[in-house]
Measured scan of single mutants.
Amino acid sequence: NITNLCPFDEVFNATRFASVYAWNRKRISNCVADYSVLYNLAPFFTFKCYGVSPTKLNDLCFTNVYADSFVIRGDEVRQIAPGQTGNIADYNYKLPDDFTGCVIAWNSNKLDSKVSGNYNYLYRLFRKSNLKPFERDISTEIYQAGNKPCNGVAGFNCYFPLRSYSFRPTYGVGHQPYRVVVLSFELLHAPATVCGPKKST
């Protein structure tokens, strides 16, 4: 009989979030998941669920729940959905087409922007091929755009693959930082360890 609440607040209220290319994953298990708490945590810009209804979450049980978190800019949030393409979905964080879970995003301009520009958040701009779903690539190998090998040196047709967002508070919403948490629900042929409040007794 599990009584402890799932530590969603640790994920959502973390002081620092990860850069999207090096997104963070927390496995959540053996706890009571009260998803209604999430609705009250922040004024969400996005709370979209796929393959599951957000209002039914509190009635369900899962084997595992994974919470992935990272920062992107406002106009990239739409890429965090099944079947999307674009720089983020292709080279940084890719959801599977049959994704079961929820994408939660909110504006973090007050936390993640600086007047002089916050350069701490990076994204991958160049990659030889698209990522597979939930693949994480943290390599910093020089990207070869031409025929000549780069031998690890940046220059003509040889690019450092990561680029930094420079978040400034005066930017338009599309270029402001957004914190994203992706909850993916895993149903294996194994005992369910993460249940809503109704199912945990």
Rank of each mutant, 00 (worst) to 15 (best):
Y93V: 01
A42C: 01
V32M: 09
N1H: 08
Y178N: 06
Y123M: 06
I2H: 12
A145W: 10
I80K: 02
K128F: 07
L183W: 01
H175Y: 12
A89E: 03
V11H: 03
V180M: 03
K94V: 00
S53K: 13
A42Q: 13
P43V: 05
Y159T: 13
P7Q: 12
S116K: 13
F156L: 15
K128W: 05
V180L: 03
K198F: 13
N107W: 05
E135H: 06
I88F: 03
T15V: 09
G174C: 08
S184W: 12
L187E: 09
D98S: 09
Y50L: 01
P54N: 09
Y91A: 05
R127W: 01
Y171R: 14
R127C: 05
N109T: 12
S69Y: 05
A14D: 07
N58M: 09
L111F: 11
S129K: 14
N109Y: 10
T201Y: 13
D75A: 08
F126Q: 13
N147T: 14
P82L: 00
P149D: 13
K199N: 15
L187I: 12
I2A: 14
V65Q: 02
V11F: 06
Y143A: 06
G74S: 05
D137R: 01
S53Q: 14
G51R: 11
R124D: 06
L57A: 06
D112A: 01
K199H: 15
D137K: 01
Y159L: 10
D112L: 01
T55L: 13
S139M: 04
A14T: 07
S116I: 10
T170Q: 13
P82W: 00
R127T: 04
T63H: 10
V181T: 01
V115F: 11
F62K: 07
T170V: 09
V77I: 10
R179D: 03
I104E: 00
F62A: 10
T201P: 14
R168N: 15
L111E: 14
P43L: 05
V153G: 11
T170N: 14
T46H: 15
L60I: 11
S200V: 14
S53P: 10
Q144R: 08
V194K: 10
T46K: 13
E135C: 04
K148Q: 14
C195N: 08
V77Q: 03
N107A: 06
Y159V: 10
F167G: 05
N130L: 11
T170E: 14
G101Y: 00
C6S: 04
L95T: 01
V181K: 00
S36H: 08
I138Y: 07
F70L: 01
G172L: 12
A190L: 11
F156W: 12
C49S: 00
F44T: 14
Y21G: 03
N30I: 02
A89N: 03
L183E: 00
T15D: 11
N107Y: 03
E141N: 11
S19Y: 01
C158Y: 01
L183G: 00
T46A: 10
G174N: 15
N24M: 05
K94Q: 01
A154G: 11
L38K: 04
A42R: 13
G101C: 01
I104K: 00
L111I: 14
I72W: 01
G172H: 14
